[in-house]
Computed example of a mutant assay.
Amino acid sequence: MAWAGRGTCPGSQADLVGHARSRPVRLSRRSRRLQRSTHRRRHRRDPRCGGTERAIIGGLSLGGYMSLAFARAHPKRVRALLIIDTGPGFKKDDAREAWNARALATADKFDREGLDVLKAATRERATASHRDARGLALAARGMLTQRDAKVIELLPEIKVPSLIVVGADDTPFLAASDYMAAKIPGAQKVVIPAAGHAVNIDQPQAFVDAVLPFLKNLPE
């Protein structure tokens, strides 16, 4: 998700590669770079935004991690960050390897069982619409897996306003949210009660109430 400003300035929402309506693609290093630069191209010098090249970048879960990766790759393109129900990756190799093993196991399961895998998933995943399971399998292998600690090491260098939102019941990401709030200078954190990993779906009004004041109070 990217939003360049107020008033008539447009926002945009992009499906991650392999998700929803996007086509399956085997992610090369070049295609990962292209994915991260999508919002930069979309908002570049939009006349409705006063010619700005900066946008508010945000996402949930993997989208939040990709937003941090975008900020690392294109810091001058980022006006603010919305980091929702996500984590910044891992410093320790063994923790990253365990994460990657789970991601690869998920990819294998999509290959074997197709979209039926989602029927036993959490509510937000079970109700999502995807083109096919092959795209999700390729995305799990090419995007969900992590290669280094560059994103988590970036946190103290982030210089834009940042809002971290997490559901109180999203247990796997509570500590990660605390960590990001402590490491990103000036970051704000909101924990929303009675919400899990899809905080915007579980408690939509509380989510809006958390995000809108942050957006409205951003410096010009």
Rank of each mutant, 00 (worst) to 15 (best):
M1Q: 05
W3I: 14
W3M: 09
A4C: 12
G5S: 04
G7P: 07
G11F: 01
Q13E: 12
A14K: 00
L16K: 00
G18P: 02
G18E: 04
R23N: 15
P24M: 05
V25F: 02
R30Q: 12
L34C: 00
Q35M: 09
T38S: 09
H39Y: 14
R40V: 03
R41V: 02
R42A: 09
R45C: 12
R48V: 12
C49R: 05
G51R: 06
E53S: 15
I56C: 15
I56A: 13
I56H: 10
I56E: 03
I56P: 12
I56R: 09
I57S: 07
S67G: 12
S67C: 08
L68T: 07
F70R: 08
A71T: 14
A73D: 07
A73H: 02
R77M: 14
A80K: 00
I83Y: 03
I84C: 02
D85K: 01
D85H: 04
T86V: 03
P88K: 10
A95G: 06
R96L: 08
W99V: 01
N100C: 06
L104T: 14
T106V: 13
A107N: 07
K109W: 15
E113S: 11
G114N: 04
G114W: 03
D116M: 05
K119V: 14
E124H: 15
R125T: 03
A126G: 11
A126N: 09
S129W: 06
H130K: 07
R131F: 15
A133N: 12
A133Y: 05
L136N: 00
L136G: 06
L136F: 01
R141F: 04
L144P: 05
T145Y: 05
T145L: 06
D148N: 14
K150L: 14
L154Q: 10
L154W: 08
L155H: 02
L155F: 09
E157F: 14
V160H: 13
V166E: 15
A168L: 10
T171L: 11
T171C: 10
T171A: 12
S177K: 05
M180L: 04
I184M: 02
K189P: 04
I192N: 06
I192C: 03
I192V: 11
A195H: 06
A195D: 01
H197R: 03
H197E: 01
A198N: 01
I201P: 07
I201Y: 13
F207K: 06
V208W: 13
V208K: 15
V208Y: 13
D209M: 12
L212R: 08
P213A: 08
L215W: 00
P219A: 14
